[in-house]
Each structure stands twice: as structure tokens, then as C-alpha cells.
Nucleic acid binder design. Structure first.
Lengths: 203, 203
DNA sequence: ACCTGAACACCGTTCAAGT
DNA sequence: ACCTGAACACCGTTCAAGT
């Protein structure tokens, strides 16, 4: 037929991304299918492939926007009286974000690129941007850049691990309610332990 | 036709599980399909459904065996001179295990049961058994059972987070080579920090 | 230029029919 | 009793044909 510009390419793009997000929020990656997206927006499956290379490309786009939203959420965190307190706030903001968007967040870990394909460069850049927010918060207390790098990664991984176990329902060793307390415990004990190490090095 | 007992039900079960494990080790959950399993073992797809309820049931069985193997690996860790050292050894053993079976381990997080279904009771039991190994190692240093529970969960989640980021290739913020150092850093700083807290409570 | 929809090569799962 | 294989209801992706 040729519905010819009932929607512009950009509008179509947003329609597709919107429908995809809804499907993922409802049933995770398993709920996403090209044909179902097409049904929801009233186009044929083929249309998706005019706009996106394939489903992986589409998912990567959604993930990019999600990382941007998290970056914004972390950017909105006001610095606290001490670096330690700021890290606490960042960690809780991350936790809140993942709990508000559990299925969408899980997408980052459920979705895998086919064997050959690498993650795009902009994706890697976004990740580093997020991590640098933690590194910056740690800067006043960890001057050696190696220490800062490592501590930021350990904290990030630790908080990720807690949210992962809490949201997965598969390793339900951690309940959703207990997650914030575990995150606080991790951050405070770990940073306290690091501080002691620092002191030892200083003496 | 009715190949009638060329293999016993148990043999067939093992054939299916073996082929499934190979497929997962090659390409993750995405590489697994009932039809491909059937092809590999020379039976028709329908046969799988005489032995397993469905693919989820089959995957859950594989996951159970994997948890058993990890439990054994952790059980083989000899206690060290101090509780802290023992936890270090457990954490490294966990890390080694996940790095030796990356795709299989990822199965635990890639695979989700359909909306209604809950994880079976034996599954939950196995998880608690694993966690109790960490709790036991912590027992000499953390007497309050609440503290023990929390510390074991934080450590477990933390190590899980590090391996997850290292193996995912999607959040490649952590390289495979750096993982052991991050795990050591997490365990030593966290436990040192907890120790300080304890001291404070004691005074 | 844009979109369709049939076509191809796949899925998971069921179940009547065969041995 | 055990296993098959056709059938059903799905997939992702491509591309000739239509407007």
C-alpha cells in the first residue's frame, strides 16, 4: 500500500522505541518481538527494518537511553558533607533507579550481542561516564588514581551485585526490602576499611 | 517408529542434559533449542517432553547440577589460618568456578521462569547451602547472627557483581584479568571495615 | 520513497498414530 | 510403552512488488 509519510521517520522511530519499552517493561526481553512491535504500532514487520538494522540495534538504542537516564539521575544527586556520604547517596540513587525500572535495567544483562558483534563505542563511553561520577566522588579521599579506579569499580560491582540478586528472583538470596541496608553496609564498611589501609600506608 | 528402549529413560535423560550443556557452553541460552537438542541426540523433538516437562524444567535441572558443582568446589576449599583468609579463599574459588564455566554460570541470570512460575524448593535450598558456607567462615569473627547473615550476603553479592561485570562483555567496566584483584580488595577492605565497626560496638 | 506481505528458515509444544 | 512427526502458533529477517 504505502502509508507514505503518515509518520515521519523520527516519529516512527519513537513509536517503535515506545512500544518496545512497554513490551520489555511488561515481560522483559522475552516479551519483545519484532512482529509484536509492528502489531502494536500498526505497521508491518518489515517497516522496523527501514529504521533499525535489526532487533539488537533497537535494543542497544533503548539501553543507551536508559544509561542516559541513569546518568541524569546520578547527576541530580547533590554532593553531601563528606565524600563517603556522597558515595552513599550515589549508591542509593543507583539502587532506586534500578528498582524503578527493574525489567528495563535487567535488559543490560539479559541481552547479549551475537558472537561476533562488539558493543558500540558510544555505549562504552556512557559506561565510563557513569563510573567517573563515582570516581569523582572518591577523589577527595583517594588521591592515587589507581586506588580511585579500583574502589569505584568495586563499589559499582558491589551495588550491581546486590540489585542483581534482589531483582532477579532467581538468586533470591537478597530480598528487595533488604537491598538498601545491604548497600549502605557495603559502602560504609568498604570505605572504612579502605581508609584504614590508607592510614597504614601514610604511617 | 518406536526405537523402544535403545536407551533407558535415565540414559536418555543424560544424553539430553549432555547435549544441552554443550549447546549452552557454546552459545549461551540463545544456543539452546529443543529441536537442536533432539537433532544432536538423534531423537525427535517430542521425546524431550517424555522426560522433561518443558525447556524451563530442563534448564532448571542443569542449573541445579551447576549449583551442586559449585558447592563441591567451595567444600574443597581448606580452612585457612584466619576467618578472613578463609573468606578470601572461598571468594577466589567462586571466581575461579565462574571463570571456568562462564556461559553455564551466566545461565543462572539469563534464564527466567515464565511470569507465574516460582523457583522450586530444592533450588532455594541449594542457594542457602552455598551461602551458609560463607556464613560459617565468618562465624568466628561475627557472633551476632544478623551481622553474619548480612555480611555473607554483601560479600556474595559483591563477588557476584564483579564476576558479572567481568564476564558479561556488556558492562565491560571490569576486565577478566582484574577481577581477582578486585575481589581481594573487596573482601579485605570490607572485612577490615566491619572489624572496625565491631570494635566500636565493643568499646 | 515508503511500506507491504509473502517467503524462508527457524522456534516450543502437543498429541494422534504407529510399532 | 515408547517414540514419531505432522500440526499449530509462533519467531527474525529479507526483498520483490505495489502505491
Amino acid at each position: 500500500m504505502g502509508r507514505r509519510s503518515v509518520h515521519t521517520a523520527d516519529e516512527l522511530r519513537e513509536l517503535i522505541l515506545g512500544a518496545s519499552t512497554e513490551l520489555i517493561e511488561a515481560n522483559g526481553l522475552a516479551g519483545l518481538s519484532a512482529r509484536e512491535i509492528a502489531r502494536r504500532i500498526g505497521y508491518s514487520p518489515g517497516t522496523l527494518y527501514n529504521i533499525f538494522e535489526n532487533l539488537d540495534d533497537l535494543v542497544l538504542t533503548i539501553e543507551g537511553r536508559l544509561l542516559d537516564r541513569l546518568d541524569q539521575a546520578l547527576g541530580d544527586v547533590p554532593p553531601a558533607s563528606s565524600p563517603t556520604q556522597t558515595v552513599h547517596r550515589l549508591a542509593q540513587a543507583y539502587l532506586r533507579f534500578t528498582h524503578e525500572n527493574p525489567k528495563l535495567w535487567n535488559l543490560l544483562f539479559e541481552h547479549h550481542l551475537p558472537p561476533g558483534r562488539e558493543v558500540p563505542a558510544w555505549y562504552q563511553t556512557k559506561l565510563e561516564g557513569l563510573l567517573s561520577r563515582v570516581e569523582n566522588a572518591l577523589a577527595p579521599v583517594l588521591t592515587r588514581s589507581d586506588d580511585k579506579r579500583r574502589a569505584a569499580r568495586v563499589l559499582w560491582a558491589g551495588v550491581h551485585g546486590i540489585t542483581s540478586l534482589a531483582t532477579t528472583d532467581k538468586l533470591s538470596i537478597v530480598s528487595t526490602e533488604s537491598a538498601p541496608a545491604l548497600v549502605d553496609d557495603l559502602v560504609s564498611a568498604y570505605l572504612k576499611g579502605l581508609g584504614e589501609k590508607q592510614d597504614q600506608l601514610a604511617t
